[in-house]
Design a binder for these strands. Structure first.
Lengths: 230, 230
DNA sequence: CCGACTTTGTGCAAACGTTCACAAGGGCGT
DNA sequence: ACGCCCTTGTGAACGTTTGCACAAAGTCGG
């Protein structure tokens, strides 16, 4: 794995683990802002985000020194700083490939269109589906990918196709210049370096839950349940 | 949190990071099995799973010594061992709460019903939706939760409701005895200890992608002397 | 039956992440 | 203006994860 990120870059070297939590903090901050709460302490914020307060302070300290000792953090100001750090002050056009059940769910997902992300297009290869409307977007043929990506300057692609076609779609997205991919298909995608892939995988999460559930349920039975012959 | 190896068996005390990768290995192993490939080396398996081979070997070594030096791993045997470790040799009834776009997508998701997981029921609170059919399951009223959980001995619940009702649904699931929860709603769930929650959050993933995309686009001082991967 | 070759399993060290504990710094009441 | 009190920001300790490098252990050809 090329987890090198930014090699020895002093000012911009925010840990990956911190980045993964910033969106959670941001969401919680929005909730505070909606209640017109002007400032929050690291303790309150941490509790709402479900993390340790020391961790939260260290995370925020990576963005700069935006708190006031004895008082806490200004909610509005922090919202802005976190948003800026995450790149949410700009607009991110997104193309969704695959208009099946999942693609439809994604297109209709409210949190999608909000806060910086905008659906540039929904693509599919099924002639039955192309032309139908989903969440206010006409589904276009996947053959339009190149034009759509170029016209809207899309840099983020979401793959919501069956596993079998995911790699081909991915290759094509990459070829058209997409450098960030969110993959919902249950496959390991192969991409050239410089392309960022994140995966969301229901069945992996379920299996992890099953592991822990099983462990919990096997509090007894010290003996191996079955002997396995080879 | 600190659970060291309890003792003796060795099947206890598997690192969390390893557990998160086992489902990926399992998927890749199935792919090899379908091609009737009898054995794989750690190198091949690691490449297919997108990880380092040393990491893969160390991961597998936590389950036991199931490889053969000079040869590799028997695909079928390893499938069985990983499945067993993850608790997939037993059946896991799952209840899905929320039959909106996402709930429907989940219910229709193929990988769901396969390999150990079975949808016990799909619940919703909207009278318009209750009674409709989704993926061969009649949507039941959320008031049936207690009966459904008890009758099917459900221990895994999936929350696919809007954010506003997620915590209430969660509390109710926990009250009925569900101890593993997969949360798709964009909120931080509060649960008593002993309950395992995992979250899947589209907008968090998008924001993480945006962060990296932004960083890439702000390539000031491009002195990538060592940019050529190892 | 033996020696060459291949691949696993693991000791170790470095990188990364988390948590504790407290000094530094700022606001607020008096 | 002063000192008390509160909360941030961070040094240091600790725990976890990764990756290297190699001995151990097995296969296979001759």
């Amino acid at each position: 794995m090329s987890r090198r990120a930014v090699s020895a870059n002093g000012s911009q070297g925010i840990p990956e683990a911190t980045i993964a939590r910033l969106p959670v903090y941001l969401r919680v901050l929005y909730a505070f802002a909606e209640q017109d709460i002007p400032t929050v302490s690291s303790e309150e914020l941490a509790a709402a985000a479900g993390v340790n307060s020391a961790k939260l302070r260290k995370d925020l300290s990576h963005l700069g020194s935006y708190g006031t000792r004895g008082v806490g953090y200004d909610v509005e100001y922090l919202v802005y700083q976190v948003s800026r750090e995450l790149g949410l002050t700009q607009d991110w056009p997104v193309v969704i490939v695959g208009a099946g059940n999942l693609g439809r769910a994604l297109a209709n997902y409210g949190g999608f269109a909000s806060r910086g992300f905008r659906i540039a297009a929904v693509l599919d290869s099924d002639p039955e589906v192309v032309g139908t409307q989903i969440a206010g977007h006409g589904v276009q043929d996947v053959e339009q990918m190149e034009q759509v990506v170029a016209r809207h300057r899309v840099s983020i692609g979401v793959i919501a196709t069956p596993a079998g076609t995911a790699q081909a779609v991915c290759d094509r997205l990459v070829a058209t210049g997409v450098t960030s991919i969110l993959n919902f298909a249950p496959v390991v995608l192969n991409v050239p370096s410089g392309v960022d892939v994140r995966k969301v995988d229901l069945s992996i999460e379920l299996q992890i839950l099953a592991f822990h559930a099983q462990r919990r349920s096997v509090v007894r039975v010290p003996q191996d349940a079955e002997a396995v012959g080879r």
